[in-house]
Design a protein around this nucleic acid. Structure first.
Length: 787
DNA sequence: AAGAAGTGGCTTTTT
DNA sequence: GCCACTTCTT
């Protein structure tokens, strides 16, 4: 196969480039993935470079998987071992540290290759504990803000000492102390946060010259995708890996750099030619994705930025439709307009794919509601991820605590989940002791038991807990080593977790059980691929929201950040208002504003045929808050007005309202018909594993009926699920409104009574209302009627 | 010790 | 409007 065929001259030059540094400035929609994959195939097939000597790095697992698959398809290789290594930065680093990290112990106290990865929830728990120990609370600083401050320091290679030395006031001094304590606790737990994974790999490769040399020899050719979003340590990692040769090809677009807030340094791409002298620079400026109008609008917008190399994309395609601008009277109406337009679009062409993009996740709710009114299925990317759900984190924490007893954060998470009589006071005592004696929580428990430091009841509970953990740990190490799913199953059973869920009769517990059984499936598949507990946990820590975008979904709701790298025939950008987009947090810095503008550019260039922009004159900031007047986004003015078609808002508004009030629509809302699915729903998680697994996944065994329920099921089972409630049998009853009876409520409509407590005037009912979830009502006041 | 009920406080974007 | 945290109750 000729990998140069069908490419334009610039693409061909990039693909044919072999040795030396290469910078590919690839505009939006200019076919860069094609170039990267073809170049790899070309190296393998024409230049006889062994696949494993090529390393390509991306930011998401999904991008990595797709790239790998495309290369394998191109070279027709059947042996997966002969394929290039395509990986994300983070998983590459984990791989290096777990395989070859021994020498890191020289420079990182307590490091072993069995380290734990702390995700941001773990980071927050750790900070809570540190705050408590230092007598601080969230009024001092929000945990998340503290996290980003620490992360900011780390990504700029500033140690706690550096932060301390440069601090100008007492507050920063304290923050530096928190940072110092945070690092100390990570070491004690042999844990690494996301920043550490990169930083420590860089340190390892700098320190262990032997190892560095091995890696240099192994990876002859390196490629980096989305180079504009690399940060300092990623940059250094690449420098170390290309120390002995300069066969580094990077692909990026400075106009699409949108992760500055996470430490990405746009200078990495702007200064590539300086950092790698003799670099070949190739510009891909022909856009194959969008209509001319969309492309011109986006280009004109981003031309307002100063910090760019400057390029102008061009296209062969026609002007196409103008860009539609809708001015809504309020946020709800904006959402209804979008749903209405989507409905019309998909009625006209059921095969279109639509994306609704927004700046902040909370904007999705109104749009979801509107889509539900129209009975349109949709997919939400982001928000709550599967691996963030409490039950998943609980069970994984058991695994983590078993794999590494020093991991105090995980241990504390599950020490009394399910409740086993180890209360708040007891836990506080243990934490205090651990702090004073500089021990891990596990060690502290052991010592304190030896010293008879607990009252009888707590002591008994702790002994049982300790025995249980020891027993589970012994089980996990039995010979032959049990599979991950066996260990998980044992954990669920032995810890009483399953039992706790079985005893819980709320609808939530059903969905929790489903999630856990999906986790078991995932574990079973991991086991089949030969993965152990560590690999399984690593994978769970490193999945991202973007990994689970289903590009075939007809309607997707996602943040603009998550839309990077994707394309859709029809795109809506919602909430084009000052303060929302550009976000108010970016107002005080020109740099941040430029990044917002780039984000807008990214969002606009996702569209192939049709682009809608919308804003609302009034919007409620919080659920209960006042309607606040908004100012249209400055970005709207930066788009050439002749490319915009203003939709007449009065007409559309009326139409939308009329439609939304139709009886059938209202009924649909009441019955909560159709909520589509989020990526973290059962089907999508299954699909995610299916795509990466060797064999297709065995889904949760479910009868066709149940499957139908799942399809129309609710994406946030915690709150909205009622499909999983076991349908109550109509029990003949003496009293009205007993458990199992169906009632009518003036506001919530029809509901099923799940529980009844108290007598006479005191009687309280727990009622499940489809679409509203569980409500606790006082029978006397609720104004309920028999169905 | 463990749940239920009430309250304040807040929402960028995420590997 | 939701969540996490506190206070109240048993």
């Amino acid at each position: 196969m000729d990998f140069l065929e069908g490419l334009n001259p610039q693409q061909r030059a990039a693909v044919a480039h072999v040795e030396g540094p290469l910078l590919i400035l690839a505009g939006a929609g200019s076919g860069k993935t094609r170039v990267i994959t073809h170049r790899m195939a070309h190296l393998v097939d024409v230049h006889r470079v062994p696949g494993p000597c090529i390393l390509a790095v991306t930011f998401t697992n999904k991008a990595a998987d797709e790239m790998r698959q495309r290369v394998v398809r191109l070279v027709g290789g059947s042996d997966p071992k002969a394929a290039p290594l395509v990986s994300t930065f983070h998983s590459f680093c984990v791989r290096v540290l777990r395989r070859d990290g021994d020498r890191l112990a020289d420079i990182r106290r307590g490091f072993t290759k069995r380290f734990t990865i702390y995700d941001d929830d773990d980071q927050v728990s750790l900070l809570k504990s540190i705050f408590k120990g230092m007598g601080l609370d969230e009024k001092f600083m929000q945990y998340r803000a503290m996290c980003s401050w620490i992360s900011h320091n780390k990504s700029h290679k500033l140690s706690p000492q550096d932060a301390y030395d440069s601090s100008k006031d007492a507050r920063i001094t304290r923050m530096a102390k928190v940072y110092d304590e945070y690092q100390g606790r990570l070491l004690q737990a042999n844990a690494m946060d996301f920043d550490d994974l990169l930083l420590e790999t860089v340190r390892l490769l700098s320190h262990d010259t032997n190892l560095r040399s091995q890696y240099n020899q192994r990876f002859e050719f390196l490629m980096v995708d989305e180079y504009q979003d690399t940060n300092r340590s990623q940059y250094e990692l690449m420098r170390l890996l290309t120390g002995e040769h300069h066969n580094l090809a990077v692909v990026g677009d400075e106009d699409q750099s949108i992760y500055g807030w996470r430490g990405a340094d746009i200078r990495n791409i702007l200064d590539f030619e300086r950092d790698y002298p003799n670099a070949t620079v190739i510009r891909l400026e022909q856009n194959y994705r969008s209509t001319k109008n969309i492309l011109d609008a986006a280009s004109a917008l981003v031309a307002h930025n100063k910090e760019r190399k400057g390029k102008w994309l061009w296209t062969d395609s026609d002007g196409g439709s103008p860009i539609a601008l809708y001015q809504a009277p309020n946020g709800e109406n904006e959402a209804l307009f979008i749903a209405d337009a989507i409905d019309k679009t998909l009625k006209r062409n059921p095969n279109d794919r639509v994306a609704v993009l927004y700046r902040t996740n909370f904007q999705s709710r109104q749009i979801e509601e509107a889509l539900r009114r129209y009975g349109r299925k949709y997919t939400v990317v982001g928000g709550f991820s599967f691996y963030q759900r409490a039950e998943i984190k609980d069970v994984l924490s058991y695994l983590k605590a078993l794999a590494s007893p020093q991991d105090s954060i995980s241990l504390l998470r599950i020490i009394n989940t399910p409740a086993r009589g180890i209360g708040k006071t007891t836990i506080e005592q243990i934490e205090l002791y651990a702090l004073e004696q500089n021990l891990s929580v596990w060690e502290a428990i052991g010592r304190m038991l030896d010293e008879n430091a607990f009252p009888a009841r707590a002591e008994a509970a702790l002994r049982l807990f300790r025995n249980m953990m020891q027993e589970l740990s012994a089980y996990a190490m039995e010979d032959p080593i049990p599979t991950v799913n066996d260990v998980l199953r044992k954990v669920l059973e032995r810890t009483g977790y399953s039992q706790m869920l079985d005893a819980d009769e709320t609808p939530q517990s059903e969905s929790r059980k489903e999630n856990l059984s999906e986790l078991l499936n995932a574990a079973a598949e991991a086991a089949e691929r030969g993965e152990g507990i560590t690999e399984f946990l690593d994978h769970a820590a490193l999945v991202s929201d973007a990994d689970s975008v289903d590009e075939r979904a007809p309607v997707s709701l996602l943040t603009m950040h998550n839309a990077k790298g994707l394309e859709f025939p029809v795109v809506f950008i919602a909430g084009m208002e000052e303060g929302l987009f550009p976000h108010s947090r970016s107002f005080d810095s020109e740099k941040a504003l430029e990044e917002e503008r780039r984000l807008c550019y990214v969002a606009m260039t996702r569209a192939e045929k049709r682009l809608y922009l919308s804003w609302a004159k009034f919007r409620r900031r919080f659920g209960g808050g006042e309607l606040e007047q908004s100012i249209p986004s400055r970005f709207l003015k930066e788009v050439p007005q002749e490319l915009i078609e203003k939709l007449r808002d009065e007409d559309d508004a009326r139409q939308v309202n009329l439609h939304s009030e139709r009886y059938a629509v209202r009924e649909a809302v009441k019955r909560n018909l159709y909520t589509g699915k989020t990526y973290n729903s059962i089907e999508n998680i299954g699909q995610f594993f299916a795509e990466r697994g060797v064999k297709p996944p065995s889904m949760v065994p479910s009868a066709p009926v149940k499957r139908a329920e799942a399809a129309t099921g609710i994406q946030k089972p915690e709150v909205r699920s009622q499909t999983t409630v076991p349908s109550p049998k109509p029990v003949p009853r003496k009293k009205p409104f007993g458990s199992g009876s169906t009632i009518l409520h003036p506001k919530y409509g029809r509901g099923t009574v799940l529980r009844r407590e108290g007598e006479g005037d005191d009687a309280k009912l727990t009622v499940s209302f489809p679409g509203y979830g569980l409500k606790k009502l006082v029978e006397k006041f609720a104004g309920i009627k028999e169905e």
